[in-house]
């Protein structure tokens, strides 16, 4: 389990990173997904571009109601409170349940979202939050609504010449309720079903059901789910027509328990 030969590049600025991308380099941030794939020779890039030294790649900045989380911000930093306020509480709660601390020390929010593993934690939570993924391409920045960012298994709305440079979220008022439930038999196992429900004052509640071996199911108005968690979760899960009865039961349970936790 040693990787095939590949070249390693460490761009120091964004234009250099975009140029490497244009030449076919595979971007890597914390390497918690790409590393094992390289070792197993499931990924065979000719060149890897290490994004971790780009200016502004990691870190959180707040401007008014907008919280900008650099794509290279680690799960651990978020767990440790890098994001302020109620939004930060919610994100920290999600972050601390990502795998193990050593994974969180290196893994990044942007790397995880851009990789778009259907079982990944941010893939299952960020679409429920008001905000955008910020893509940087040759023409500059482009904002993609988080609910529309992940399109499928390992598939995102990023264009081939774009890098995910930040996540921009709207700060959440103190009264925001959030329910999050995922099924892992042990830390570090890929989730078999994840759901979250976000209910903020003055806006329709949103929900996400993920880890479905497909793009996450984003529910833009989850009022019915919040009102009647059991019946509505059963209806939504049944509509997915999952083949495996266990996975269907987990999807139903995840949605219901997340909704109950958000009430």
């Amino acid at each position: 389990m040693k990787p095939a030969p590949f070249a390693y590049a460490r761009p120091d600025d964004w234009p250099a990173a975009l140029a490497l991308l244009a030449e076919g380099a595979r971007p890597v941030a914390g390497g918690q997904s790409l590393g094992p794939m390289l070792n197993l020779r499931l990924a065979l890039p000719e060149r890897v571009a290490d994004l971790r030294h780009l200016p502004g790649y990691a870190g959180v900045t707040v401007q008014g109601e907008t919280v900008r989380i650099g794509a290279g911000t680690t799960h651990a930093a978020i767990e440790d409170g890098a994001v302020p306020g109620r939004l930060g509480d919610i994100l920290a709660g999600v972050a601390r349940r990502i795998a193990y601390r050593p994974v969180r020390n290196r893994g990044t929010i942007g790397g995880s979202l851009a990789h778009a593993d259907p079982a990944a934690d941010w893939v299952a939570v960020l679409p429920a939050l008001p905000g955008h993924a910020v893509a940087l391409g040759p023409a500059g920045e482009r904002r993609i609504p988080l609910a529309a960012f992940v399109l499928g298994v390992f598939e995102t709305a990023l264009r081939g010449d774009e890098l995910l440079c930040a996540i921009e979220l709207t700060a959440l008022p103190a009264g925001t309720r959030f329910g999050h439930w995922k099924f892992c038999r042990k830390p570090g196992e890929f989730s078999k079903a994840t759901a979250c429900v976000l209910a903020r004052p003055g806006a329709p509640p949103t929900a996400v059901l993920a880890a479905l071996d497909a793009a996450p199911l984003v529910i833009a108005d989850a009022a019915a789910l919040l009102a009647e968690p059991a019946a509505e979760a059963a209806r939504i899960a049944a509509a997915l027509a999952l083949d495996d009865p266990w996975r269907a039961a987990l999807a139903r349970t995840a949605l219901r328990r997340a909704a109950e936790a958000a009430r």
């Binding site: 094992p36 197993l40 038999r185 042990k186 830390p187 570090g188 196992e189 890929f190």
Partner: peptide, 14 residues
Amino acid sequence: AGTLADYLLPGATE
């Protein structure tokens, strides 16, 4: 099951 993410071993938390 080719990795320990697929072949589950009980750990300290289990």
